[in-house]
Simulated scan of single mutants.
Amino acid sequence: MSNIVLKIDSIEKSFGGLKAVRELSLFVNKGEILGMIGPNGSGKTTIFNIISGFLKPDRGKIFLNGTDITKLSPHIRADLGIGRLFQDVRIFKKLTAIENVLLAQKNHSIEGPLASFFKINRIKNEKKKLTEEALKWLEFVGLKDKRDTIAENLSFGQQKLLALATILFSDPEIILLDEPLSGLDPQMKNKVLDLILELKDLGKTIIVIEHLLDFVFDMSDRVILLNNGKKVYDGSPKELRKNHLLMEVFTGNHAE
């Protein structure tokens, strides 16, 4: 039985005359933390948008547990187990922390007020069970005592933790973390790193984009290095640290 959770096969994506992703193939094993690094414009966020369904590739296919999901919507992909933490915090600022988590059940996208209203009514019948589950993930990220705090009154770091809790509430099989450490102070960065490693211990599969390379190397089982939309390295973080390729790519001296 295959241990591969996510597989990307020969993906390409262009915007006008710019090739953002070029013949990209990769896989992610169950329970693995895969780091994805590269200079600005190397295609990292485009790849996340393709995996999560916000962009359609020009060619190539995406498989989740062996099922072709290339043409599925972001909503359906979320229901199938793809969770995404965006670089910009996406929460309901006027709702409490626990309300944010409850609204995230089987849906990682921000909805309109009408859809959210019906969702609130729908979950009332299971409120006790769902509340216990929501509190479990708020406690996991260290926000249980903030359950009734309006989200806009949380610090930026706490808002990022809340966004992570909303994703975990839906029990995703694979989690895409887009710059999870961006804008955080050193203490909060270490906290988020610890949480990511705890999620790995819980069996979660994670792909992380992050500019802070030392953190990526410390947390990842495997690292992919991108340059101009193309994969130029796929392997051990330890080996990449001492590989001249890393410096060449980030200084713009890598020959295609």
Rank of each mutant, 00 (worst) to 15 (best):
153 N>A: 03
144 K>D: 14
110 I>G: 00
149 T>D: 11
147 R>F: 15
156 F>Y: 15
110 I>R: 01
134 A>E: 13
153 N>F: 13
150 I>W: 03
116 S>H: 02
123 I>C: 02
124 K>G: 00
135 L>K: 14
112 G>A: 00
126 E>G: 10
124 K>W: 08
120 I>K: 14
155 S>T: 13
133 E>L: 13
145 D>E: 15
130 L>E: 03
152 E>G: 01
148 D>Y: 15
132 E>M: 12
142 G>P: 07
111 E>L: 13
158 Q>G: 06
146 K>F: 15
110 I>M: 06
128 K>E: 14
152 E>R: 15
113 P>S: 13
114 L>M: 09
129 K>S: 14
139 E>V: 01
146 K>I: 09
160 K>H: 02
119 K>V: 03
134 A>N: 03
126 E>V: 02
128 K>I: 08
143 L>D: 13
147 R>S: 15
119 K>N: 05
135 L>S: 09
142 G>K: 05
132 E>W: 01
138 L>N: 10
126 E>L: 05
114 L>W: 10
120 I>S: 11
150 I>G: 01
135 L>C: 10
137 W>L: 04
136 K>H: 09
120 I>N: 05
112 G>L: 02
149 T>F: 15
129 K>V: 12
158 Q>Y: 07
132 E>Y: 05
126 E>F: 10
143 L>Y: 08
143 L>N: 11
130 L>V: 04
112 G>N: 09
157 G>M: 08
135 L>T: 10
155 S>A: 05
114 L>V: 10
110 I>F: 00
123 I>Y: 04
131 T>S: 14
150 I>L: 07
155 S>G: 06
142 G>S: 04
128 K>Q: 12
148 D>K: 15
141 V>Y: 10
140 F>E: 08
111 E>I: 01
132 E>Q: 10
136 K>M: 06
141 V>D: 08
142 G>E: 09
146 K>N: 12
148 D>H: 15
136 K>D: 12
125 N>L: 11
118 F>I: 10
111 E>A: 09
113 P>V: 12
141 V>Q: 05
135 L>D: 10
152 E>A: 09
153 N>G: 12
126 E>Y: 10
126 E>C: 02
127 K>P: 00
148 D>T: 11
124 K>C: 01
113 P>N: 14
